[in-house]
Amino acid sequence: MRIGLITAALPLAGGAHRLILEGLREQLVARGHEVEPVWLPFDATPGEVLPQMAAFRMVRLDGYFDRVITLRAPAHAVAHRRKVVWFTHPLRSIHEPEQEHGHARALRAAVTRADAAALRAAHAVLAGSEAAREILYRDKLPGSGVLPPPLPHPERLRAGPLGDEVVVIARMAPWNRQHLLLEALALTQGPLRLRLCGTASDPAYPQALRDAARRLGIADRVTIEPRWITEEEKANLLENALAVATLPRHGNGHAYPVLEAAQAARPILTTTDAGEAADAVADGETGLVTSPDPASLAQALDRLQADRALAVRLGAAARARAAQRGTGWDAVVERLLA
């Protein structure tokens, strides 16, 4: 089959969807399909969204592909007789605007209408996560089932002995709450360290984190790296981490950190309000789920470093559970090509 993988992207911005697209392309090629990725430039400024969606709709794909799979809003706006939408997240700029007012509400309603029209025309719509499925449901958009994207290269993640460092790999931004972990670390003792990595769109936040670390007197126990971490670097960091912490406020639709941690047999530390991450972790079984405050997080951190056997057990269980769920590419490809 000639398959188009259509995505919409801000140029030069990293993101999980790039890995998903690459992974999917490899998998489809390995199964004998001809695959062409299509990258459409996209600017998420709210006032610009609708004309771009109209432009996407005009792109002529029927003559080139037997099937198209769209990843990332609003690539689903393209038209094709056999369109499969893998809906991971709606546009943040529209659904979580900086300011809520009449015009923002009107934009959200109009974009939702356009989304609905695009999804109704699809051959299949698969939600990339529970959260995505809820949004589809809430906005009365068509959708049939949840299909979380698997890790693109699970074999690259290795499980080594547990060290002393708790690793956070996520965009360095207030909604990922790296600052909360700093405050938690300050309430712990011992060799426990924290490593915060990930790109920062606003340099003010990593700076604030450094200032906080100094102020809290833990600068020597914290490593702050505001940059893109390659897959290889990630594998190295996770291999000997004590745990992986992920606590995005409101969740971000992928829960990759959980999948990666599980694959590397690391216990996962998350909070009750972290969306998919909280859903994906069983407290006391595959990781620890605490209240989103420094004291509770500190307690969990202390537990992990004091009770290594617990940490090992949690990590192993996380890995076993992930393997059991069978969220591998075979299942994904089968659903996408159905």
């Binding site: 801000l10 140029p11 430039p41 600017d43 771009q52 109209a54 432009a55």
Partner: peptide, 9 residues
Amino acid sequence: LARNLRVSG
């Protein structure tokens, strides 16, 4: 469609 695409970043 080309005239209505937008590039930023």
